[in-house]
Nucleic acid binder design. Structure first.
Lengths: 157, 157
DNA sequence: TGATTGCCCATGGTATCCCATAAAATACAG
DNA sequence: CTGTATTTTATGGGATACCATGGGCAATCA
């Protein structure tokens, strides 16, 4: 499998009155490079967030499902959980999408949505909740690596 | 094998007084892309649901049957189970189908029908029953994906 | 002929398309 | 390197097309 350009960094955009959000331009480029002006999204199973990705990400999910015996229970579980709950959202001419009400509620998003790159995919969070999660992640990472330096705020260069 | 657009996500539509249900527009597109304004359906053998798909799915079933020795028992079992109970339903001008009474009863569908995408095919459920099944699938999947790595069968690199 | 099935039109609501504008990023010239 | 021109982004809002749904009517069949 070819190495695809990863989703990186965090962007916070506004959710307008019609429920639309601009997908960050950087992310848009990656999505289109994968061959579609669309993204795929579902509720995260591990937190108040929406997990999303492009065609490649979705094909990977599909492959994961198809790899199991279609008459087996594992196949069905995967299909219900991964495909049955994933929605395809196409971008409008300006690069916006309208997330289903239910997904926004799961993430607790109201006026602002934070897009955070996770490499092969990305997530959408309520901005403050994401900050909390990130702080926790920084701590855990520093501990694991054993070199707990004081948080240098940002640029690590 | 070319990658076909998969059936994704869940849509709940109303069953009208005449027993008609709108097939979700997204699903319709996929069906038509496969070359027919029709779908194929039969009762699920693993739950209170109707299994359905388009031409490609049908061809796949057919191939599965044809792969066995026509004089053998397996061939006949498959044929009776997979082909003998499958009905072809054509969509009306507005993209609706009328499911046979028996299928609806098997799925326990009355006023509302939930279409859930399963990749190469889709299923029709009674909405609440589907929610229950999905909740279970999410649990099972989270456990499987969380604890296990995918079997090192296929070279994933 | 009564019931069923398929075909056609009507409609409210929603999502998409399209244009406009302000803010930000980038390119460019001096 | 600094101020300005040009191009992208993000956002707002009106117009439009599509979708799910309901009902009428004609053809079909028992």
């Amino acid at each position: 499998m070819k190495f695809a350009r990863p989703f990186l960094s965090t962007f916070v955009n506004k959710v307008d009155a019609k429920g639309r959000v601009s997908v960050p331009a950087r992310f848009r480029d990656i999505l289109e490079a994968q061959g579609a002006r669309a993204l795929y999204a579902r509720a995260s199973t591990s937190g108040p967030a929406v997990v999303a990705g492009g065609l490649s990400w979705m094909e990977q999910l599909h492959a994961e499902v198809a790899a199991h015996d279609p008459s087996g229970e594992v196949h069905d579980d995967f299909a219900y959980a991964l495909l049955g709950d994933t929605v395809e959202l196409s971008l409008d001419g300006e690069g916006r999408v309208g997330f289903p009400e239910e997904l926004m509620r799961h993430a607790g998003v109201e006026g602002l949505a934070a897009f955070v790159g996770m490499g092969a995919y990305f997530e959408i969070w309520e901005p403050r909740a994401l900050e909390v999660r990130k702080a926790q992640a920084r701590l855990a990472t520093a501990e694991r690596r054993g070199k707990l330096r004081l948080p240098p705020r940002e640029g690590s260069r």
